[in-house]
């Protein structure tokens, strides 16, 4: 699957409750625009951005999904082969933070450890209405091995940092997987195990087969 998508192509999926600002974050990041009249997302939409990190150029394919609870079942379609997930909540809405926790659970269960997770608390421009404390969110993020950033799509704050950190981590993760795979291929002492591992992870995306091998 990784080959199909290309060496420097990374897929990011945005997940989170409706109205937390997922679309606005992406539009600020990709087009540097903001509208408080941004229509609701009913079906996932796609944007792409090319960025340079060190000597690497990478293409980010960013999938922005519908947050409405009732469309939750559509999630797997978008995250199933994603390299990274950006889980967005609204800092003025505790419920939306609880929803992020649900997504983390679901992703870990369905996709495993290979997907890079980043959590973004959006709408920090509405600081007076804040309900989710930064420390609480950071602590949680650390406990699940995710980055945490605070953002404001309206003010254009924290967004570059968020995507950059996510991208770096995705590159790192893929390099790790690649080197592991090539190590296994070039004379690992358990070739049979490697083959079995590869097939069992087939289709789960770029980072397939990194868990079971301890060589």
């Amino acid at each position: 699957m990784a080959d199909v998508r290309g060496k420097n192509n990374y897929k990011i999926v945005l997940l989170g409750e409706g109205r937390v600002g997922k679309t606005s974050l992406v539009l600020r990041y990709v087009n540097n625009t903001f509208s408080d009249k941004q229509q609701t997302t009913i079906q996932a939409s796609f944007l792409s951005k090319r960025i340079n990190i060190g000597e690497n150029t990478c293409n980010l394919a960013i999938w922005d999904t519908a947050g409405q609870e009732r469309f939750h079942a559509l999630g797997p379609i978008y995250y199933r082969d994603a390299d990274g997930a950006l889980l967005v909540y609204d800092t003025t809405d505790t419920e939306s933070f609880a929803k992020v926790k649900n997504w983390v659970k679901e992703l870990r269960k369905m996709v495993g450890q290979e997907i890079v997770l980043c959590i973004a608390g959006n709408k920090i421009d509405l600081d007076k209405e804040r309900q989710v404390e930064k420390s609480e969110a950071e602590e949680y993020a650390a406990s699940v091995g995710a980055y945490h950033f605070q953002t404001s799509a309206k003010l254009g704050k924290g967004i570059e940092e968020t995507f950059l950190a996510l991208a770096k981590k995705m590159i790192e993760q893929r390099q790790e997987n690649d080197s592991r795979q090539s190590a296994r291929r070039s004379g690992g002492n358990a070739p049979i195990l490697v083959v079995a591992d590869d097939t069992s992870n087939g289709g789960s995306g770029a980072a397939s087969g990194s868990k079971a091998c301890n060589c």
Partner: peptide, 20 residues
């Protein structure tokens, strides 16, 4: 992925137009 993108781009008001 590409079908969905293609279909989205047919819309008169793509919710977010692609940069590529």
């Amino acid at each position: 992925d590409s079908v969905l993108k293609f279909v989205n781009d047919l819309s008169v008001s793509p919710s977010s137009s692609s940069s590529s």
